[in-house]
Write a protein that binds this DNA or RNA. Structure first.
Length: 468
RNA sequence: GGCCCGUUCGUCUAGUGGUUAGGACUCCAGGUUUUCAUCCUGGCAACAGGAGUUCGAUUCUCCUACGGGCUACCA
């Protein structure tokens, strides 16, 4: 395939959501897989609803996901002249006509079951048109759909044939002269030299309309591919109604971009293998539109969560650190890089999101302020604990170079001396060092924290517990 | 109303004219572990329904049902 050009074309009337991200991803993967280009176009012809803040938000989300677009962003609002001229061409060529029917009348006939425009103005002669025009009546411009069939081959849907009488003489220019969606899309996709239009299934009926415009304008049509919808638990198209968060929320919730992308790519696409965990580069290498099916897929946060954990477990510490710093730049301030990597190494197997990670890592950087009450009660309820903890502390204190083996050996020795199980010591020590009852191997933890910190925290706990 | 699409465990999916219909998530039960998590083992759980073609249909055809998308001077 000669390097394709694709585009993601959101309208800035809301933040980027899962469906949009998935469409962007599939476009991106297709482009990169074939060494093509991925463009971003902002469809802001609806001036009422479009907001700059949404444009910013969408761009930021795409960047966070790692779906960097090529070249400059194209804004439709800057291209009014191009649309005007195309509309004039259609009008002049007899492929479009002015319509003076009022909105009210049309809405009424629709309510009565006339779903299509009755073509009232299609056959107005020149005199009638100028009469309407002279009286200052507002008008829209509609395309004139000829008899016949509209056919194309969809990469995902296969051959699509639509009888032209199913296609309305739809409006291409509003009464204020501005182009409607279908009009602007065709002009831009042609101008941008887009080779493949990859978008949601909700656009499938727009495609036959747009092909009519391509034909009327004498343009070659791109190849189309329509992606299945992402569904909510009720099988309806996923939306805010389902409480589906925007992409920004996934970032705030501590998901890694690759994990989210990985989840998204598995919705409707199968990699032709049992592999389920992919990083972006692997997705690019393996992605194939032909392996996308038509069935909508229900969004399942549990699986996303699992995939997130898988990424967390197997990703390099460097990558995870970047993810953490993206959410909380101050994480681990004052500690050296190697120390931070060690913390990540110890914690990554038990965290499924960056957020959980940060929630569990504080004690590596700060002495605990609080001790979980339940754990205190269970593991440090009486004075006898102080005895052997103190003994253990002194043993540790006497050792020159602490490492995992020697810490474990000493602890088990103390347990033996007192004729208690190792757990009786491990749990209160863990509590003293971290304030919480769970976490990585105590011995590894101690080695990383270092002797000084361990002793300090043990002393603090020895003074505090048991609570009388 | 019309046009289009879909239907395999609860969810994401594999699969074949003859299979014990496979995997993953979830859930449950064990095991490993100082704890939590991980990890390992096992378990529950599906071909929407009806006709037809066929020696044989989950697989091919048709119909029905159900679900979805579109049907704006929104995109």
């Amino acid at each position: 395939m000669i390097s394709p050009k694709v585009r993601f074309a959101p309208s800035p009337t809301g933040e980027l959501h899962l469906g949009g991200a998935r469409t962007a991803l599939f476009n991106y993967l297709f482009a990169k897989h074939h060494n093509g280009q991925f463009f971003l176009r902002v469809e802001d012809t609806d001036r009422e609803r479009s907001k700059d803040e949404f444009t910013d938000q969408i761009c930021e989300s795409l960047k966070w996901l790692g779906l960097q677009w090529d070249g400059e962003i194209l804004f439709q609002s800057n291209r009014i002249n191009e649309y005007q001229s195309a509309i004039q061409t259609l009008l002049a060529g007899g492929n479009a006509y002015r319509c003076f029917c009022s909105k009210d009348v049309l809405e009424k006939s629709r309510a009565e079951g006339m779903y299509q425009y009755p073509k009232t103005c299609r056959y107005l002669d020149a005199d009638e048109i100028s009469k309407h025009l002279n009286s200052g009546e507002s008008n829209v411009i509609r395309i004139l759909i000829p008899e016949g069939q509209t056919s194309y081959h969809d990469i995902i849907y296969g051959p699509v044939n639509v009888n032209n009488n199913e296609i309305d003489d739809f409006i291409i220019a509003r009464s204020d002269g501005s182009p409607t969606y279908n009009m602007a899309v065709v002009v831009d996709d042609h101008a941008m030299d887009i080779t493949h239009v990859i978008r949601g299934e909700d656009h499938i009926s727009n495609t036959s309309k747009q092909i009519q415009i391509y034909k009327a304008l004498g343009f070659d049509t791109p190849v189309f591919a329509h992606l299945p919808m992402i569904l909510g638990p009720d099988k309806k198209r996923l939306s805010k109604r389902h409480g589906a968060p925007g992409i920004q929320q996934f970032k705030d919730d501590g998901y890694l971009p690759d994990a989210l992308l990985n989840y998204l790519v598995m919705l409707g696409w199968n990699p032709d293998s049992e592999q389920e965990i992919f990083v972006l580069d692997e997705m690019i290498a393996k992605f194939d539109l032909a392996q996308v099916h038509k069935k909508g897929a229900v969004y399942d946060e549990k699986k996303l969560y699992w995939i997130s954990g898988q990424h967390m477990h197997r990703l390099g510490n460097k990558y995870i650190l970047e993810g953490i710093l993206a959410v909380k730049p101050s994480w681990g301030n004052g500690f050296d890089l190697q120390y931070k990597y060690s913390v990540i190494e110890l914690l990554k197997v038990r965290a499924k999101s960056i957020l959980e990670f940060m929630n569990q890592s504080d004690y590596f950087f700060n002495d605990p302020e609080k001790y979980e009450p339940k754990s205190v009660e269970k593991n440090w309820s009486d004075n006898s604990v102080n005895n052997f903890i103190n003994t253990f502390k002194n043993k540790i204190d006497a050792i020159e170079n602490l490492d995992v083996e020697i810490i474990e050996k000493e602890l088990r020795n103390v347990a033996e001396t007192y004729e208690i199980s190792a757990g009786k010591i491990i749990h209160p020590v863990r509590l003293a060092l971290s304030g919480i009852p769970n976490g990585p191997s105590l011995f590894s933890m101690m080695e990383l924290l270092g002797k000084e910190t361990c002793i300090r925290r043990l002393n603090k706990a020895l003074n505090m517990f048991p609570k009388s």
